[in-house]
Nucleic acid binder design. Structure first.
Lengths: 340, 340
DNA sequence: GTGAAAGCGCTAACAT
DNA sequence: ATGTTAGCGCTTTCAC
């Protein structure tokens, strides 16, 4: 397989230098550190760059400078609605800087996490922001070896690797369940899986809150199979209703599951919130599609992304791998799906 | 800002070579073209690689070999449900190869398309797969300059750049509208924007089909504002109902808009399909959340992605930039939202 | 403020 | 099947 392109040689820094009558390094400076070059020269150089359409070669740049300018962002479900605000936060913070972000999906598998980490290490990333899926710090040694700052996102319950920012999923889940209890619901199901560490923390919070009230029922925990959360919530809710008609509230692992549950309830003739209380997780907005509007645990998703980026930049600026985890607050936003 | 990592020097190919008692190029071959190295040597070398934890430096590799091994995938809304099967098709085809795919969002803006193309050119991609958003081939000169094969996805109505694969959105839209007409609907609205070239093709198909029947009404075309299609469909449908209660069917730009319209209809007390026919676009599955199940124009999304990747690999194997567009079939999948 | 020299880590091309 | 040589295009370091 011929992976190279055509015969046409790309223009290089030297081409620009020759045409501008300066040395290559001056062109390099004009492009990366304009203030270090005299106004006159800079103007000439940038003119030539434009004229001959010079595009820098990132591989050469990365090789010579020992950094690629890439910030690697690793997460389990980058395409999910819940991740989207996080990504926006990250991109907004890096906006207009010299760093480029690159996203990679690691699914729910610690070994894929390791594989992707290795792929990025090969690229000398400037930094890594990750939402780890490993329950146990199996990839800890790998991360320790990495020559760049690492920010661990989303979950503060993990043993921190370098820097961390997130929420406590366990207490967030407790908050949700206690809210349901305070509204008079008592047979409360959990919808959605034991899939990764954050899910398990939510499960723990759910179990603790119910155990405290003497109402925990292992049979009321329902795992999802697929990834299309709305449809999952829908089918799961139907299944719950047929097998455990006594259940009077559901706490869902994410808002899409909750939305699916809401649709199913409506089709089953269950009144929400009278017959069934529904509480979601993440605090997404469905602009009226959810009728009644869903109660949800609102996470500062955008802020997590933004601050993760900020911590990374601070570490890069100082040149140190700092330690320290930041925990942000969550809030229960009461809609109409739990009011009674 | 110190972008470099810590002081620890990364192990290099030469380190491996020294330890294994061979020359660097032999290590390089053992890693990339194992069959060219004797079994014995290969075993020794891979042992050393494992032992000292050698990770190749992609920048050096890219610089020396003049290709980065990256396949750039550019599209307007990579996170959308409609794009997801396309991405799977692409990734499945490249699975286990030496090429890595890298995705980038270009939004709905031809200038962002140009910017991203330039960013990738700087990385010497092995190939590019793109879903262009430019109505006019403004980026054509840029693409002509690119030293690698380019596959244009989704829309066969564009002047082909190198290779193309997709469907004819105009006739697909016609198919949908004719279906609605055949079911006895006559006041048919169009939901969803004039945002990119594919949207406009659908609009053209819609207009043609209705004009042929003498039923085209410019006022029945409704543009969306936002990106959250379900919510958009929902609010737009409510607005349509209040302003044009006579409308008896809607053809939606995508299935999520259609889903939103379906929810709104149900809340408005409109019976689907009796009072209102709804037809979507893309052929996604909502597993029972859509009740009644939506009629939709089904596109071979996965196949488009898979074949785009295939065309690219064929071009790489032959070393030529081939020309030629492939048009795939679409099908109208009748649900219960247009049956009457 | 500008330049010369050296080399980042790897692979292509050409030996042997 | 393995090695030698040269160089990819840029940035670092140090000199002026």
């Amino acid at each position: 397989m011929r992976l190279r392109g055509g015969a046409r040689a790309r223009t290089t820094l030297s081409d620009v230098a020759r045409k501008a009558g300066v040395s290559p390094i001056t062109v390099s400076r004009a492009l990366r550190e304009p203030h270090k070059v005299s106004d006159k020269l800079r103007e000439t150089i940038l003119g030539v760059v434009d004229e001959i359409g010079y595009v820098p070669n990132f591989a050469a740049r990365a090789l010579a400078s020992r950094h690629s300018g890439i910030i690697a962002v690793l997460g389990p479900v980058l395409g999910s609605p819940g991740f989207s605000p996080v990504a926006s936060g990250i991109e907004d913070r890096f906006q207009a800087g010299e760093l480029r972000t690159q996203f990679a999906n690691i699914g729910l598998d610690a070994s894929e996490e390791a594989r992707q980490l290795n792929l990025f290490v090969a690229q000398n990333p400037a930094g890594i922001i990750m939402e780890s899926v490993a329950e146990f710090p199996v990839n800890r040694p790998l991360i320790d070896e990495i020559d760049c700052p690492v920010v661990q996102m989303m979950d503060t319950s993990l043993e921190p690797l370098d820097m961390g920012i997130g929420v406590c999923h366990r207490s967030a889940a407790k908050l949700a369940v206690r809210h349901l209890l305070s509204k008079g619901y008592s047979k409360i199901a959990l919808l959605g899986g034991n899939k990764d560490i954050r899910s398990r923390r939510r499960f723990e919070g759910y179990r603790e809150a119910l155990s405290d009230a003497g109402l925990y029922q292992p049979g009321y925990v329902f795992d999802t199979e697929g990834r299309n959360s709305v449809a999952d919530g829908h089918s799961l809710m139907r299944c719950i209703n047929s097998r455990y008609p006594e259940i009077d509230a559901v706490f869902c692992h994410d808002d899409e599951l909750a939305l699916g549950a809401l649709f199913a309830a409506s089709q089953l003739g269950l009144r929400v919130p009278e017959d069934l209380g529904i509480c979601g997780y993440n605090g997404l907005h469905f602009s009226g599609v959810d009728d009644p509007p869903l109660t949800s645990v609102s996470l500062p998703l955008y802020e997590i992304g933004f601050k993760a980026a900020e911590m990374l930049m601070a570490a890069l600026a100082s040149g140190e791998r700092k330690e320290g985890a930041v925990e942000l607050e969550v809030a229960l936003v009461e809609g109409a799906s739990t009011r009674r």
